[in-house]
Design a protein around this nucleic acid. Structure first.
Lengths: 344, 344
DNA sequence: TTGTAAGCGTTATCAA
DNA sequence: TTGATAACGCTTACAA
């Protein structure tokens, strides 16, 4: 009753050739008469033959899958606008090659390294994406030791044998600061991401540098953690400063939206009393009130390019070049406005 | 240079036994002398042997992986608070069993069915999660045809051979409505999800039923699509009604937060002029201003239970019971307040 | 140009 | 209680 799926042997016998020839024909390898190739392909088609990943995997020692490890920590995982779109981009490449994406979510009490180790020990994937890069990221050496090909999302600061797909966060951050400067702000504060992250410090240093270029100093730089809760905390501290900033630049939208709420809860009007800007252009940015001025990248494209780059490595390319993606673009909405008049 | 991973044959020769015995010992099967079992286990340990998923897969015709198909449609994927937590819950079960989670994101131009078909044809998984159930969901028959075990998230309305893990949306919705009734509201509107979804209609019918039990009719029921953009649209229509509702119940938080923004943009004060409630208790719900009254479920637990249930099926259990999860709980915040006085 | 056979690392069947 | 040996479905030398 259960229809067994046809194997290469079935195709062979139907086409009246050997298994070896079928394999050659199916993989489009030279050295077979065109007539027999046609015959084999026809037979395979009539039988509805599909290659067995399992058998191929065992035979050629490949998994035909790529891996992504993310932590279960809500700070990284929950409602982050990056991963869903990134994953969709990755899949758009994988689905055309018959590859699968294996997601490894690191649960409480484990380190992210455990996730990569599991993936490597189980030989579940042929390569992995290295996201949320840290300074002196220990995972790079780990992956080298595990012999697992990888592509890093953004460029690590230490030595790395892996190709990097990068999206420079600095122009976007600069554009936001520039925009605020043009609105007349001079007391601008920043709520940064955790300094362990490469992209967090890239944004905060660009923030500082852009102000410096205009001859200004930051009103303050608060450490956030990319979560809404952290955004609230940081915002409260900023609003309690003796000389309250007139504008706050957040390292992501979640903190910015939370900050917006905190400012409003404190009785401030945005942008009249305080301008607020985010980073990511997440879905809600456009729809909160007032709409959030932010910076928009293309995480789907990021996923596509990262998958293509990783696949070059997996396919055996020895020199895979880094790829630089176009920087994020400023999106001006209503949460930023002209600086309030100084009450002296 | 490259250290080959030890195989079962290596363990066998080191322990001085046959491959067959090693396999028995490693799988803890009866019929071996305790002494040899110990000897084999010791040898395996010294060699650092790990089972090869690939070989096992081919041999026993199992993938040791479960699959989840989600659409790339931003409406479902982006910034949905459910999936990340759900996936984390799933992983917490899979990681203890050496299973992997294969994510299949359906890209533009494909149907979700294509995703399941790919998973089945490539024999990538032993079972799948069926999420976002629709009325008369065609995927159920598809999975039956594909011979792919599944567990449905919530109970389908048609015939289904698969176990269901359910979380009744009605008590949560009723609690919200009840809360608003107690605050004196009588003109309460609803922004629903797409009627094709089982959970969307469960929520809207619970909304209507709870009002009816209090002798009231809905002020209006608008069709939303679970996205922020859709939430804005629906809210604008509601606010333009001749008799504006004094409270709006949204079928999820994203629409509610967008609706909050729309109301504020229209010059209304929440909750003085309008009460707003969501569904999900997403991260931002607590931090927008005013904090969003909503309803909280436990998607992590949902994932855990769904994975356990699916695994029973995968392990060959013939009668797997449905599991009912505790309903979502009302979380009262500042976005709901006493009904405004009627201006007659 | 094609067929044969070995191998990938397990599990499972049968003798011994 | 154990050891051979044959699958599983494919790739790939090596022969013919």
């Amino acid at each position: 009753m259960v229809k067994q799926r046809p194997t290469i042997a079935d195709v062979a016998s139907r086409a009246g050739v050997s298994k070896g020839s079928v394999s050659f024909a199916l993989n489009g390898r030279p050295g077979l008469a065109q007539a027999t190739v046609d015959k084999i392909l026809a037979a395979a088609d009539e039988l509805g033959w599909r290659p067995s990943n399992r058998a191929r995997s065992l035979s050629v020692s490949k998994a035909f899958a790529l891996g992504l490890v993310i932590t279960r920590d809500p700070a990284v995982l929950s409602s982050d606008p990056f991963f869903p779109a990134f994953i969709a981009g990755v899949e758009s490449v994988l689905s055309t090659r018959g590859q699968a994406l294996v997601l490894q979510v690191v649960t409480a009490g484990e380190s992210e390294a455990d996730g990569y180790r599991r993936l490597a020990q189980d030989a579940r994937v042929d390569g992995v994406f290295l996201s949320d890069l840290r300074h002196d990221d220990p995972r790079i050496q780990l992956l080298v030791d595990l012999g697992l090909p990888a592509v890093t999302l953004n460029r690590p600061d230490g030595e790395s044998p892996f190709p990097a797909v990068t999206l420079d966060d600095r122009p976007g951050t600069s554009a936001v600061v520039q925009h605020l400067l043009e609105l007349g702000h001079t007391r601008i504060a920043h709520v940064a991401g955790p300094p362990a992250f490469v992209h967090a410090t890239a944004r905060s240093s660009a923030f500082v540098a852009t102000l410096a270029a205009a001859g200004l100093k930051p009103a303050a730089v608060e450490a956030g953690d990319f979560t809404a809760a952290g955004g609230i905390e940081a915002t409260r501290r900023l609003l309690a400063l003796p000389k309250r900033p007139t504008a706050i630049v957040y390292a992501n939208d979640r903190m910015a939206i939370a900050g917006l709420g905190a400012a409003q809860a404190a009785g401030l009007t945005v942008p009249d009393d305080l301008s607020i800007a985010g980073f990511d252009d997440s879905e809600l940015a456009e729809y909160v009130h007032p709409g959030l001025t932010t910076v928009r990248a293309d995480p789907f494209r990021f996923g596509e390019v990262a998958a293509q780059t990783l696949n070059q490595l997996v396919d055996g390319a020895t020199e895979v070049p880094d790829v630089e993606l176009p920087p994020a673009q400023l999106v001006v909405r209503r949460s930023t406005g002209t600086a309030p008049l100084e009450e002296t």
